[in-house]
Every structure is written in C-alpha cells, then in structure tokens.
C-alpha cells in the first residue's frame, strides 16, 4: 500500500526525520510509537503530502506522491492530531465540503451518510461543530478522513484528549475499519499500540529504532529469561537448590511473605525454560511452589530500553567529545 524509502527532513540544523524506510501492507495496522519530537508527525505529514521531504520517495498504491501528488492523495485519508474542523459549520455541511475537496461532489449526500453511520455521528449531523464535545469532534475528523473510501488511513494520535469510554469506542472503531483499510496510527500510549497494531515502528530522534510485531519486540529485547517464584521453605535451602540448577544466572529474595515463605526472582539464560527443572528440584526438596510467573518484557520496557539506551549512548559520546 505504502512504500517509504530513505525519507529525510531537516529543519535548519535539526534532523526531524533522517533516512527512514518502511512499508505498509494491505489490511495492516501499523503503529508509530515514540517520545514527543521523535518525528512521528513529521513522517505522517510527509506521507500526506503536507510536507515536502528533503530526500526519499513515498509511493502510495503504486503512485509516486512527489511526482503526481493529486492522484496519490486520493488514496489517503488523514486525521491530524487536532481534527481539522470549521467550528461555524454543521457536521453535514463540513462533510459535504470534504467530499467536494476530495473531488466527489456527486453523490456527496450518500457518501456523507455512509461515513456518518460508520462513525456513529448521524444524530448530530445538523448541529454546529463548535457546540459538540471532543469525542464527537474526533469522530467527525475520522469521518472526514473516511470520505471517498481511501485505501490508507493515517491517524495522528486518534485518542488523545478523550475520556476512557470514548477511547474504547474509538479503538473499537479503528479495529473495525482495519477490515477494509490499511491504517497507520501514531500514539504514545503503549497499551493502545499494543492492542491495536499488527506491527510497530518505534521512532527515536528521527530514526527508526525498531520495527516488528509487538510480540517479537518484547521477545527480542529480552536478554534473559526471568521468573518470579514464591516458595515455602527455609530461605538458604531454597536459594541453594535453585542456584545449583543448570542455566541459572542469578537468584535473589525480593519479597518476604510469611515466616518461611519468600518471593524469589530467578534469572536464567536467554530462551531457556526454567519452569520444569525448578518445579522438580523444589518438589524433591519438599519445598512447595506457591506461585510462579514468567516475567515478560512489556512493550513499555522495550520502549524505555530503546529510547533511554540511545539517549545515554549519545550522552556518553558527547561526554567523550568534551574530554
């Protein structure tokens, strides 16, 4: 659907986006994740033809955006961070205007009704936009992006500023839209990206730091396998039994629960399943396991790992420069 190749954009001396490449497949939801100022919006603006990149190509549905912007833009529906609404218009008037802008003046009424039904805003069609709540405004923004049934939807932080109920509604809506559209969405809410996206691009300082499925991302960045176990038995015996097992890197007491019940954190070699050996060894020593949890690296950990690591690396190199 979209092929982005070595895209770069500089503002003065600031590299907003430098040399990023990725693709969006049909029917896929691709999430852009990154701290503020990572270049998410800049990238999205370039894909929508709002910003001219300094370098690189953007091909939408086989059409080069920079060569034939008019044709390429027809395949894109865009919702910026703040929905681009005219407060003095009614919802219907606004959507009709969007139809005309996108070059479908005929049958505009049917099209407006179609997108209003999709977004659940038909009840407010004759109300002035300025009198509507933030949640409705966001939906109108999405409805406007859906006009003309574009193949690709680009949603810049679609749930920002909404209450939890509205967030859930918008997410359900995005999920259902993915059946017929390919979607790129940006967010800095990790659970949201995790729940919605098929693939994630983590951006940091204008570069792609990682690109993969949410599951693979948490797997890849896990350097050790971690377990948490609660065992009933004398502390020393438990520590000895666990640490004498093969493949164990470290074990420590992290929680005191009862007189002889403790919580332990066990770290083993990567990709090694420690659960079975642990169970048999402790059972043999008649030290019952009361709880055992595999600790996975959450997307949040991965995100912090990537963004913080890069920052510290850079600071270190800066420090060296100063010396």
């Amino acid at each position: 659907m979209i092929e982005v190749k070595s895209l770069s954009k500089t503002y003065g001396s600031l590299n907003a986006v430098s040399d990023i490449s990725f693709s969006l497949k049909e029917g896929e939801i691709l999430g852009f994740l990154g701290p503020n100022g990572a270049g998410k919006s800049t990238t999205m603006n370039m894909i929508c033809g709002l910003l001219v990149p300094d370098e690189g190509t953007i091909v939408i549905n086989g059409i080069d955006l920079l060569e034939s912007p008019k044709k390429a833009k027809r395949h894109i529906g865009y919702l910026p961070e703040t929905p681009p609404l005219y407060p003095e218009m009614t919802v219907m008037e606004y959507l009709k205007f969007c139809c005309e802008l996108k070059g479908i003046p005929k049958k505009s009424k049917e099209e407006c009704i179609r997108v209003m039904n999709l977004c659940g805003i038909e009840d407010v069609q004759n109300r002035l936009i300025k009198n509507l709540s933030k949640g409705y405004k966001q939906r109108i923004g999405i409805a406007a992006a859906l006009i003309g049934d574009p193949d690709v939807l680009i949603l810049d932080e679609p749930t920002v500023g909404l209450d939890p109920k509205q967030i859930r509604e918008i997410r359900t809506m995005i999920k259902s839209l993915a059946k017929n559209h390919s979607i790129i969405l940006s967010s800095h809410i990790l659970p949201e990206v995790n729940a919605l996206c098929d693939r994630i691009i983590i951006m940091n300082k204008g570069k792609i730091a990682a690109i993969d499925t949410p599951e693979n991302l948490s797997k890849d960045f896990q350097s050790v396998s971690k377990l948490y176990v609660e065992v009933e038995g004398p502390k020393e015996d438990v520590l000895y039994t666990i640490s004498s097992l093969q493949g164990i890197l470290s074990v420590e007491v992290v929680k005191e629960i009862g007189e002889i019940i403790f919580g332990y954190q066990v770290e083993g070699e990567k990709d090694k399943d420690l659960r079975r050996p642990l169970f048999y060894a402790l059972a043999e020593g008649r030290m019952p396991i009361l709880e055992m949890t595999v600790k996975k690296m959450s997307l949040e950990d991965v995100f912090l790992h990537i963004t913080l690591n890069e920052n510290t690396n850079e600071e270190e190199s800066n420090h060296v420069d100063h010396l």
Partner: peptide, 14 residues
C-alpha cells in the same frame, strides 16, 4: 488557527 490547512493541503487540490 483551526488547523484546517492540513485538511485542505492533504486533499487532491493544488
């Protein structure tokens, strides 16, 4: 001010 320039310039209009 409304941010609507994004709507206009992302539409197929010169």
């Amino acid at each position: 001010k409304n941010g609507t320039e994004k709507l206009i310039f992302s539409s197929p209009i010169s």
